[in-house]
Design a protein around this nucleic acid. Structure first.
Lengths: 339, 339
DNA sequence: ATACAGTCTGACACCGGTGTCATAATGTCG
DNA sequence: CGACATTATGACACCGGTGTCAGACTGTAT
């Protein structure tokens, strides 16, 4: 099998390289007859353009980078799956790059990535999507980027997020409607903007229903299962014990459930537990977790699609969208017992 | 900031492009003085070679592809994390490509991937690592590849696997030593070689201890949580009910635990449950799952490292290794009660 | 018929590196 | 000291595409 290049196609079709290139890129100013002829030769010779040569000439790589630093593996998996869908649709490839927000030289690390890979664009997932420093760097270097679940408002770049505050508000209201008033809350990682938003939704729902906010009911987590376990311990040791716990993600909620079960506290009869994200684990355990479904895949898919659009044709008005979060009720929440 | 290319370096250092290229690639036949001089200019100008141009000239991409089709997200995460470690160490990038083994044109799909991305090598994870068809294709196309957890023996290519049979044998023996004789087994996906190996370890342990193998105790799963739930139903409906269940992975074991808990069957008092893999979920639920720790990250890391070595310098003897699996006991298994 | 705009096409340089080969500089040995 | 092997270096083509620009070929208005 000989290699089929643009030269062989040109020769075979009896036209110049450049004309072949024009057909390849759907450029105007090619007569229909010529276009037809070249396309036929593509078929005949089964020609595939070499992306590397193309990249060299156009200074592009057709690769999108995805930055992440997230303790929740399932979140990453969902992010990847959305990003991959968009990439595959547009013949881009996805390069994954885990790194640490608090690493001593995040900027150096990203610079290194950019010089070794010449990415066409970068998707920032939390907590990077909230890093002003990183965003300033990318802007200065003129690298297209899209923010997923970012709370930064002033930046005129692509941004897709879901309504975390609204979701947390609805979930809290759900618990209140079940008769709960002692609702503990486990916060997420302080570097993530979702943490503040979810917390604020919780507080607003309490306020709306005239329930006093009590700081002792709030524990500091960081979205990891482990931090959930620590918070669970603090909360379940409280006297009197709250009748409901709202954890900022499903992993931490699972940790609460584990400890409660260990201590033979009946869920949901004696304790209602709710999470956030609708991660797989929410339905893999018993009782299933009431949670807020966050469209992680979709957010990322849209972000990457818009990023690719933007790379092909930089526009004035960057795409920004807020998706709705949705309440999913399962067995882990129940009306408060009148004991 | 002006672009620093090999030309500017050459000019600045007062040598030819080619000599710069020699220094870049650590080629011999450069005088120490010249090498020194050029290296200093690298520093001074902060020169980074353009990987795309390099790729074009050498017909390489510095990208490793990772093929997967696995219902277990946590498995994929672990695979990626091992592969990434090796890639980053050697300045390669990782491109992830999910696709379906049973898809109508797996070969076409992979061919497409190869023509659009010019991968330098491919890591095959289960079930692709057992696909003779795919392996034959890669061999014919002369694409370097490494197999992770493959059972194919004749193929002289890089292969890293763990001892599934031994692991399953030990786990089964552990249950037997606890007094169990009615041990149900949930098989994995038939396309994965691990499925047969784990099953065989189970059978051999029974045989060694003179316990009759009974087909009615065996359910067909496919490694997904969902299939575990179906199998769990079949097994827990058996009369008499087995006193232990060994599921071929932790997800399916979690499904058994969920159903048992729903039916108020006490684990481990009335039913011992064990899984395989030591996935995160094994310690995120209560009771924690007794399982076999499989070094997924390490297997993949080694596979990718060897693959990169092989790309740089094709050797005669391909690297092959079998890693040990290790028993992890948690709360989900217990001595059979004498009721 | 002439002028002129618009459409089509190809020659050629270029992207930023590497491979091949010729030649210059140096070292070794009889 | 001359003959020869070895080391060091650069000129140049090449990888497989794209950008620029000039020129040929239309069609239309004057």
């Amino acid at each position: 099998m000989k290699k089929v290049t643009i030269n062989s196609v040109a020769e075979y079709a009896g036209v110049s390289k450049k004309t072949v290139s024009r057909v390849l890129n759907n450029e105007p100013n090619v007569s229909p007859a010529t276009r037809e002829k070249v396309l036929k030769v593509f078929e005949e010779l089964n020609y595939k353009p070499n992306p590397i040569a193309r990249g060299l000439a156009q200074n592009r790589s057709f690769i999108i980078g995805c930055l992440y630093d997230n303790p929740s593996k399932s979140y990453i998996t969902r992010v990847q799956s959305g990003a991959l869908e968009a990439c595959q649709k547009h013949s881009y490839n996805l390069l994954i790059h885990p790194c640490e927000l608090r690493g001593q030289d995040l900027i150096d690390n990203v610079e290194q990535l950019l010089t070794t890979s010449r990415l066409d664009g970068i998707v920032l997932t939390p907590p990077f999507s909230d890093s002003n420093e990183l965003i300033a760097f990318l802007k200065q270097r003129n690298i297209p980027y899209a923010r997923v679940a970012s709370a930064i408002e002033g930046d005129d770049s692509i941004s897709i997020r879901s309504n975390d505050e609204q979701g947390a508000f609805e979930l809290t209201e759900h618990l209140i409607n079940l008769g709960h008033t002692e609702i503990a809350f486990i916060k997420g990682h302080p570097d993530h903007s979702a943490t503040e938003n979810r917390f604020s939704g919780y507080q607003k729902a309490l306020a709306k229903h005239g329930i006093e906010y009590r700081e002792r009911l709030v524990a500091e987590g960081n979205f990891s299962y482990h931090s959930g376990a620590d918070s669970a311990k603090a909360i379940l040791d409280l006297e009197p014990r709250p009748t409901a716990v709202f954890a900022s993600n499903d992993y931490m909620a699972a940790a609460v459930l584990k400890l409660a079960t260990q201590r033979e506290i009946k869920v949901p009869e004696q304790l209602s537990i709710a999470g956030f994200d609708n991660a797989p684990i929410a339905r893999h355990i018993w009782p299933g977790l009431t949670t807020i479904a966050q469209p992680v895949e979709e957010m990322t898919r849209i972000a990457v699609e818009e990023l690719i659009k933007h790379i092909a044709q930089p526009q004035e008005a960057p795409f920004q969208q807020v998706l709705e979060a949705k309440l999913i009720t399962r067995e882990s929440t129940k009306a408060r017992s009148n004991s």
